[in-house]
Every structure is written in structure tokens, then in C-alpha cells.
Design a protein around this nucleic acid. Structure first.
Length: 801
RNA sequence: GGGGAUGUGGUGGAACUGGUAGACACGCUUGGCUUAGAACCAAGUGCCGAAAGGUGUGGGGGUUCGACUCCCUCCAUCCCUACCA
């Protein structure tokens, strides 16, 4: 190697060409090796890669390369989550076909991924907008239908009355449609649903077996929200009844009103007779349907003329329509207990409703459990005991029962959009008929050049099949597309089947890497899909993703990068300036994967500088080929110890902790520890040997993160012609990890007062004497009796005075 | 409103099991090299203090010989909240 300057573009090009030529990352099932399916969440093809992608895919690639070095058969595919709103919006805005917009973005982003040197098996690339993908999705939908997991029901959407379209939550800004500015209304329309609630119990219980971060597990558990409560009937005075759900039946004597959701059938009926109620319900429905907005909305109520009997008391309760009661949770009817529920309290105060304390407490409202008061026979009982007793009473008297309830709702998969997978159903005289395989795929209609896409419902040529038959005009939620792609990857090039034998070899995904923002929806839907596909015989196993790594966001100046904030940083600029290895190194060095990463234009210089230092160290140096010398000096042994200790730490950081930042830091430390004389031309044989060990370890330890420069230097240095570090992770030697002496920390009352070097085999008694003789320590403990001595082996001694 | 996180120098972060707080970098300062700059190399760098020493991990309280780490409480910021992906 000549003393040239580090030229990342050149080095990376040479190495990437060799990978391409050798098909280095194509994976085939093999019994000879243990498999490792490493999957990073596929991107939405928005145009170009953003920093979040670079980070996500670098983490995945580092782990894949490390596993490959450790001898695993690694499968790392990549594809495109290609249906969705942005393409449709761009298409409407620019009057282009969403297909060509998407294809162009894919082409662009794919070349960026290749430029970054990710070791993907591109032979299994997939695009969800491709009929070769979504025809199988349509088939799975019909299988799920046969399994009884698909049904149709009316459900609320954000309706823009001017544009006459359904809006996504993000398209509703301050209650107005983003394009038309019209006040958005909630409107009820027919939609397709998947019965995810059939799996609620299993989705909850099998979380336990997952090697996932605890926070994600908690989020999923809370989202599913299993609770134990009671259903209780309140009879209306005209003989009908309202059934409320409550988890706090112990507060039954504190009920002072009943509240029903504006979307409860009773409220809807009343609306048709009373203009006042109709007006009120409209007012309630003028918020968008996002949970956060609903919850923050001011509490509104309207007293109806209905009254119900309190089942335990000789009292009549008013029935209110209240906007804080959700139709989707429980029964859409709430028993109002203002004394022991904060929302009910707020409502009762606003509308001057009686507040009745029935649980002993200091201050109202108090949602805590406790001893019952003012509750007739149940007074004096503790909440949990009372809940049992009251439930028994309800059941005995036929006025209610104890039940399990879930917060989780069924998954509405209908979307009234163009750029999505068509739902494979036709209607004959209004009745839905599911299409057979021979009629699949249902493709999207072509768009004429210069035309904007319009909803399928406005495309007669698409939906009108004649003789009273029409096609379904809704498309799938794009979460459907992404709920099973992990499985399709294993058979992405099979045109005869959705999944084949390969899926049995590769599944489940061993490690799934993606943003924490997907912790609930995408991951829960995928888990449901896997179980449903299992039950129709498509896949084996109970869970799709064995282990999960949730990466934090990439921030700039403390905020998430976004166009509206104007703080985006385009990774391409840095790839061009410093090369792929530097940006990969920076991404891994700057913070641990699970935390957010603060982008800095200047700090990346440091990563580049580090690679240049390695380049210069290796310049004109060849591997030292002589065999290991018999003797080493103390200085040489210290370096060897550092090499092996570093290797041990780095192995552990990669394999157990995914802690790449500390791995890199310790590699930097190792290089900083090389004595200058070892690098000189006149270094001794032993010195050259030790330096050689550092270099070998370093190039291999860095290669998952900076694969191009590592491999390039390795090939020059060792004069080898391998194209990958497959199976070559080095092994550290325990012999070098043994310490001869250690630094003893001497504390007095927990404060560090001195340090001494002590041989490892020194007894505690000897250490105590030695510690007391330390000049500084001696001064402090003089004239004080020592009350206690704490000794932590080979670490510290603490005198309590 | 609910759920989940995070908070350590000027900055990113380290401290893995309760045991030396600030590793490794960025930045900055000084010096070297250079006509000058860039690059590179060397030394220094939590805060107060001349030093001795004191002090310090969002605020307050607690447990402990010892707390960034465990407990209670408060504050701030971020993510998700079912039609953005």
C-alpha cells in the first residue's frame, strides 16, 4: 500500500463492487449453520432516506455482519411499504400517477441503501404496491374471512363535507379539513373489520414469552387493557334498560346519574325526535376522532327526559348524553360516580349533579379503593370484598354480572382511498361476495397521463361490473400490508404461493429493529396477523418477532427532524462528503440504539478523523508473519492484555448489549494505548507482534460498523483475497485477562481519600493496615475510633469513623 | 385525559450487579508544524478556589458505610393514543 490519503468514495466503491460480483449477501437455507433472520422495518418510499432510516438500517446491518462473523446463516432482506397517503397526495398535487412517483422514489432510495453498504439480500426485495405482493394479501383476507375473522360494521370517520372525502387524523387541523378548511364532522359509514379481539387474551398472555423491551411490553398490555368489572342493568322507567360497564361496582351507592355516549343507539333515536338533542350530538361530533382530542375536549352534557331506577335504592337517576363517554369502550353507558371518578366529578360539578361519597377518603374526588360507607349492607367492607359480594348479588337477581372487558377494539381495515390494496370483494344485489383465487389479484385501475387519482368510488369503469354487481371501492389500511411482509420476504420470489418451505426455515424473525413509534399499532397488528395466519395453516409458531430492538429518534437541536420545523438534515450530503463508513460510525458512536440521537454537523468530523488515523496507522504496513516470540516485556504484556480485554468487552457489547457506542469507545482506547515506539520502523519483533495483534483485532471488531475500510485495509494488510469477514470473529485469550495488581480505593465515610496499587493476593487484614498508612487517610482518621470497615474485594476499602 | 420514556460538564455520551462520576468523542484554550489557513501532532479542560479543600448527575425528601443507580414526591421535555407511516 502506498502512503495515499484515505479516499472513502474510492475504497467503498471497490468493496461494494466485490460484494456485488460475489453475490455476497444472498441467503439460502442451510442446516449446516444456525439461522439468523435480521429484519429492519421497511421504509415508506417518501423520496429519499432520512437520518432515521440511516440509523435504523445501520443498526440492523451491524448486527447482521457481526452475526455472520460469528458463524450464523444471516438473512437480511429489504423492501418497500409502498402504499399510502403521501403518494396519493403527491399524485393529486402534481397530477402524476402514484405508481410512477413511488417507483421513482424506490429507485432513488435503493441506490442510497446500496451506497451505504448494507448487506441486504436483494433477491427477496418486495414492494407492497406490486400485484405480486398484494394478490397474496387479498388471498389471506379471504382465508381470514373463512376463518370467521372478517365482518362488516358501521363506524365513524372524519368527514370533510366540502371535499366529500374521509380524512386521516393528521389531515384534520383544529377541527378543519386541511385542504378545504371545512369543519370536519364525524360520519358513520360501513367498514370492514378484522376480529383482533378474538385474540385479545392470547395477544396479552404471549407477551410474556417475548424477548422485547419491557416498556414496549407494558405499552401493549395497557393497550389491550384487560380489566375485570361488572355489567349492570339500569331499567328505564318505561321497562327498557341501559347496561353500564364499570370496574368499580363497589361505588354503586354513589351513582347519581347515568351518562350515555352521543353515539349510543338511544341517543341516536332521541335525536330523530328532538332537534335540541340532534343539535347537541352534532356539536359533540364536531371533534376529530383521535383519542387525544376527544379526551382533551371540554366536557359537554345534555339531560334527557329519561330516568332510570337505581337498582339498589329507591331513587330515580337522570340519563345524560355526555361527550366523554366513548361508544367503543364497554357498553357506551357509564354510571356516574362523581365522588370517586375524576371525570364524573368534573361533569357533576359543571352540571350541578349530586356528589355522594361511598368510599372512606379525605378528599373528593378519590378514585382509590377503600372501605365502603353509605352503602347499606355493604358498608364497612373493603372494595375488593364488596366487588365480589355485589357481583354475586347482581347475578342472583338477574340485574348484572361480572365480566372481563378489553380496551382493545376490532381493527377497521377499510380506507376510502385510491393508493392501497383493493379489498377483494364484489357485491351482488348489495350482498358481499369474497373473490376466489382465480379472480385475484384485484388490481388498481390505470391512471391516464396527466390525471390525478380519484377515489375508486368515483371510477365507474372500475366498480360497475354490470348485472347488479359492483366492486368494493375501499382499499386496505396500509397496516395490513406491513402486518405480514416479514413472512413474505422468505418467499418473495415465489410466484405460486404466498409462503413456502423457506418460511419454515427462516421464521420467526430473530431480531426486529425499528422505531419506538411503532411500539403499539404495527407490532400488535403483526402479532395478530401471525396468529391468524397460524390458525389458517400458513405459518408455524405463535409469534412473528422473537426479539425486538426499538431505536430512538434522530434529533436536531433537541427536536425530531421535521419539514415543518425546518431542522432536517439530508444524510446524502454527509455520505458524499465523508463516505458511508464515517456516517455509519457516527450513528453508532453518538448514542446507544434505544436512546434518541442528537445530530451534530461538527461531531461527525471526529468519526472521520478516527478512520483517517487507522488508515494512516496501516499505511505501508504489512501483517507481521513471524511466529509468536517466547518472551514479552511488561509494557508489551500490558498492550496484549488491553487487546484481549478490549476484544472481550467488544464481543459482549455487540452480542449481549447492542451497545455499539461503548464498543467503539473501547476500540478507540485500545488504539490510544499503543506506545509510539511500537509503531516505529525499528520496533522489536515482540513489539511488532503486539501491534499486529491490535491491528487484527481492531479491523475485525470495527468491520460490522465500518465494513468497507475494514475489509479494504484487511486485504492489503494480510494480503488475503476474501470478500467478507464471514466466520472470522476473533477469540480472546482468558490468560491475558488475569490481573497482577489492582488499584485499591480508600474511602473514609464513603468519600475517596486515597488510592494504592495492591497485588491481587493481598489479604484483607494486610489491606487495612496498608490503607491506614496512606498519608492522606492517616491525617483524617487520626484521633477517631474506627466504627466499621467495609471491604469490597479487589476494589475498595471504606472506614467509617 | 390515558399509556410509555428521558433528564449527568459548553455539547453527544460513559459508569454493565448500590462501590473511583464525567471513559470515549465534539468543542474550546495553549503550544508545535505552516508565509497564512486547512489538515495533522502535543498538553490542558465539571464548577468554586491561589492552594488546601469544598462542591457536583432536573428540584425536594428518604433508605444505606456508600446512591447517576433503589424508594417517595414535584418539575421539564419527547413518543404513542386506533385513518401519518
Amino acid at each position: 500500500m502506498s502512503a495515499t490519503e484515505y479516499n472513502p468514495a474510492e475504497v467503498e466503491n471497490i468493496i461494494q463492487e466485490s460484494w456485488k460480483k460475489n453475490n455476497s449477501y444472498k441467503a439460502t437455507p442451510s442446516k449446516a449453520k444456525e439461522k439468523f433472520y435480521c429484519l429492519s422495518m421497511f421504509p415508506y418510499p417518501s423520496g429519499k432516506l432520512h437520518m432515521g432510516h440511516v440509523r435504523n438500517y445501520t443498526i440492523g446491518d451491524v448486527i447482521s455482519r457481526f452475526k455472520r462473523m460469528q458463524g450464523f446463516n444471516v438473512f437480511q432482506p429489504m423492501g418497500w411499504d409502498a402504499f399510502g397517503l403521501p403518494a396519493e397526495n403527491a399524485a393529486i398535487k402534481n397530477k402524476v400517477d402514484p405508481q410512477s412517483w413511488t417507483e421513482q422514489n424506490i429507485e432513488n432510495m435503493k441506490s442510497q441503501l446500496e451506497r451505504l453498504g448494507f448487506s441486504y439480500d436483494w433477491s427477496k426485495e418486495l414492494k407492497t404496491c406490486d400485484p405480486d405482493y398484494f394478490r397474496w394479501e387479498q388471498e389471506i383476507f379471504t382465508l381470514l374471512h373463512k376463518q370467521g375473522l372478517v365482518y362488516r360494521k358501521k363506524s365513524l370517520v372524519n368527514w370533510d363535507p366540502i371535499d366529500e372525502t374521509v380524512l386521516a387524523n393528521e389531515q384534520v387541523i383544529d377541527g378543519k379539513g386541511w385542504r378545504s378548511g371545512a369543519t370536519v364532522e364525524l360520519k358513520e359509514i360501513d367498514q370492514w373489520f378484522l376480529k383482533i379481539t378474538d385474540y385479545a387474551d392470547e395477544l396479552l398472555s404471549s407477551i410474556e414469552n417475548l424477548d422485547w423491551p419491557e416498556n414496549v411490553k407494558s405499552m401493549q398490555k395497557n393497550w389491550i387493557g384487560k380489566s375485570f368489572g361488572s355489567e349492570i342493568k339500569f331499567s328505564l322507567l318505561d321497562e327498557e334498560e341501559l347496561t353500564a360497564f364499570t370496574t368499580r361496582i363497589d361505588t354503586i351507592y354513589g351513582v347519581t346519574y347515568i351518562a350515555i355516549s352521543p353515539n349510543h343507539p338511544l341517543a341516536q333515536n332521541l335525536a330523530s325526535e328532538s332537534p335540541e338533542i340532534n343539535e347537541f350530538i352534532k356539536k359533540c361530533n364536531a371533534t376529530k376522532m383521535a383519542e387525544a382530542d376527544m379526551a382533551k375536549a371540554e366536557k359537554l352534557g345534555l339531560k334527557t327526559s329519561f330516568k332510570v331506577k337505581h337498582p339498589f335504592l329507591d331513587a330515580n337517576l337522570d340519563v345524560w348524553i355526555a361527550n366523554y363517554v366513548l361508544m367503543d369502550y364497554g357498553t357506551g353507558v357509564v354510571m356516574g360516580v362523581p365522588a370517586h371518578d375524576e371525570r364524573d366529578f368534573e361533569f357533576a360539578q359543571k352540571y350541578n349533579i349530586e356528589i355522594k361519597k361511598v368510599i372512606e377518603c379525605d378528599e373528593l374526588p378519590s378514585p382509590k379503593k377503600g372501605t365502603l360507607v353509605n352503602s347499606h349492607n355493604f358498608s364497612g367492607q373493603e372494595s375488593d370484598e364488596a366487588i365480589k359480594n355485589i357481583n354475586n348479588y347482581l347475578e342472583k337477581n338477574g340485574i348484572g354480572k361480572s365480566i372481563e372487558n378489553f380496551r382493545l377494539r376490532d381493527w377497521g381495515v377499510s380506507r376510502q382511498r385510491f393508493w392501497g390494496c383493493p379489498i377483494p370483494v364484489i357485491y351482488e344485489d348489495g350482498e358481499p361476495v369474497f373473490l376466489e383465487n382465480k379472480d385475484l389479484p384485484v388490481k388498481l385501475p390505470k391512471i391516464k397521463e396527466g390525471d390525478a387519482p380519484k377515489p375508486l368510488s368515483q371510477n365507474k369503469a372500475f366498480f360497475d361490473l354490470g348485472t347488479g354487481k359492483t366492486r368494493e371501492v375501499d382499499t386496505f389500511d396500509t397496516f395490513v400490508d406491513s402486518s405480514w411482509y416479514y413472512a413474505r420476504f422468505t418467499a418473495a420470489d415465489n410466484n405460486d404461493k404466498a409462503l413456502d418451505e423457506n418460511s419454515k426455515y427462516w421464521l420467526p424473525v430473530d431480531l426486529y429493529i425499528g422505531g419506538i413509534e411503532h411500539a403499539i399499532l404495527h407490532l400488535l397488528y403483526s402479532r395478530f396477523f401471525h396468529k391468524a395466519m397460524r390458525d389458517v395453516g400458513l405459518v408455524e409458531g405463535d409469534e412473528p418477532f422473537k426479539k425486538l430492538l426499538t431505536q430512538g429518534m434522530v434529533l436536531k437541536d433537541g427536536y425530531k427532524m421535521s419539514k415543518s420545523k425546518g431542522n432536517t438534515v439530508d444524510p446524502q450530503k454527509f455520505i458524499d462528503q465523508y463516505g458511508a463508513d464515517t456516517i455509519r460510525l457516527y450513528m453508532m458512536f453518538t448514542s446507544p440504539p434505544e436512546q434518541s440521537l442528537e445530530w451534530s454537523d461538527t461531531a461527525i468530523e471526529g468519526s472521520y478523523r478516527f478512520l483517517k488515523r487507522i488508515w494512516n496507522l496501516l499505511s505501508e504496513r504489512k501483517q507481521f508473519a513471524e511466529k509468536q516470540p517466547d518472551e514479552f516485556t511488561k509494557q508489551e504484556l500490558e498492550l496484549r492484555q488491553k487487546s484481549h480485554k478490549t476484544l472481550k468487552k467488544v464481543t459482549h457489547d455487540y452480542a449481549e448489549r447492542n451497545s455499539f457506542n461503548t464498543a467503539i469507545a473501547s476500540i478507540m482506547e485500545l488504539l490510544n494505548a499503543i506506545p509510539e515506539s511500537f509503531k516505529a520502523n525499528d520496533a522489536t519483533i515482540a513489539q511488532k507482534f503486539c501491534l499486529d495483534e491490535v491491528i487484527q483485532f481492531t479491523l475485525k471488531m470495527l468491520s460490522p460498523i465500518t465494513p468497507h475500510i475494514s475489509l479494504y485495509l484487511w486485504k492489503e494488510y494480510s494480503e488475503s483475497n476474501g470478500n467478507d469477514f464471514e466466520d472470522s470473529w476473533p477469540i480472546y485469550d482468558e490468560e491475558f485477562l488475569q490481573l497482577e495488581d489492582f488499584q485499591l480505593i480508600i474511602q473514609v465515610n464513603g468519600k475517596v481519600r486515597g488510592k494504592e496499587n495492591v497485588s491481587v493476593d493481598t489479604e484483607q487484614a494486610e489491606i487495612e493496615v496498608l490503607a491506614k498508612e496512606n498519608e492522606n487517610v492517616k491525617k483524617i482518621i487520626a484521633n477517631h475510633p474506627i466504627k466499621k470497615v467495609i471491604y469490597v474485594k479487589e476494589k475498595l476499602i471504606n472506614f467509617v469513623i
